[in-house]
Design a protein around this nucleic acid. Sequence first.
DNA 1: TCTGGGGTCCTAGGACCC
DNA 2: TCTGGGGTCCTAGGACCC
Length: 400
Amino acid sequence: MNCFFASCEIAENPNLKGKKLAVAPNAIDRRGIILAASYEARPYGIHAAMRVSEALHRCPDLVLVEPTYGIYSEYSRKFFEYFLKITPLVEPASIDEGYLDITDVCKPDEVLALATKIQKDLLELYHLPCSIGIAPNKFLAKMASDMKKPLGITILRKREIAEKLWPLPISNMIGVGKKTLASLEILGIKTIGDLAHYENLNLLKDVIGEVNATSLYAHANGMGSNEVDVNRFNDVSSLSNSQTFEHDEYDTNNMKLVIKLLTNTMCNRMEKHNLKAYNFTLQLKYNNFKVTNKSVTIKNPTSNSKTIYKIFEDIFEDFYDTSYPLRLIGVAASHLIESTEEIKQLSIFDSLDKEEKDIEIDNLVKKLNQEFGHNTLKIGINSSPEPKKDINNPFDKSWR
DNA sequence: TCTGGGGTCCTAGGACCC
DNA sequence: TCTGGGGTCCTAGGACCC
């Protein structure tokens, strides 16, 4: 989608059409940044991630709108439903972009007509402009979709990569950010073509990491996955909430209050999605922008906000460096499982204190000896903190 | 003019296991 | 007393994406 958040706001409020528009949270607050800018605002240099103060400096009559995320989700749901009428093979990639495998939907010479229809339908049905890329794999399709905006349709064939892909600056390549760009420039790689023809792969791996090097090199040569993952949004691997203070925060009570509020929000989301988590991370960003993450893994997954808040409070008290005020606090839950699929791992001893445990163990020993009739049975109690999963593995002692 | 919030994936080191 | 090779899980940090 082209400037998706701004397009949604215009779709909801046609008065905004044709205006120099930007969507930004805390628009009046100096710490807000631009999330999306309409094409009318772009000639002024307004773009996403720019600070509101700077945007207003460049374009004083910029119209600022607070983001309304519920509306964006609703539009997103609508156009993904539209895609599913074309093919079940739809991979959502973010709130405003996705991949459709149309291999079996139409013949090669009908592809352009299909793309044209999709673009026209989305504009007529939902007032959403989009750009479409058509290619033999996801990487090339994504690069193609970026080549003409707004309302572009670009076909990128394998045999055209030398002409259409390789001349592009390496910074345009998906997967190359600020840091990788700097590393590649040191190696003398300036265009995607330079990377495609780079000869010292081992050096490349040393500089930007093995996985990154392998995949970027393949992509530059036009290779990449063409499998659409229809479940990409169904199995999330983490959930988080964070908040930047309006001003640097010095008061630990206020910090704790924010942790509590963020925890509640996060737990509500977990319960809504029927999820529990094993791992919880507290993120602190100091006023000098130094970021620390501290995480804890627990035995029994939970979505209980009181339990989770206690975990974060403990981490906070242990790790917060009181010599600096905080800029941001974030909470995250990861290693998620469906509540319904939860494996009951709770040992019969887990809820007891040490004295009760000893009594329980004595009773268990007595019972087992009664059961087997004599005292020759030796019983080992393993107090390992976490019962492991594979109880069928005789070499895994932890469950014994 | 001080730089958001939601995610994913990778790396590296350490503890622990067989 | 010293030591190999294969593996998993956890933590912390970093790069990237929208």
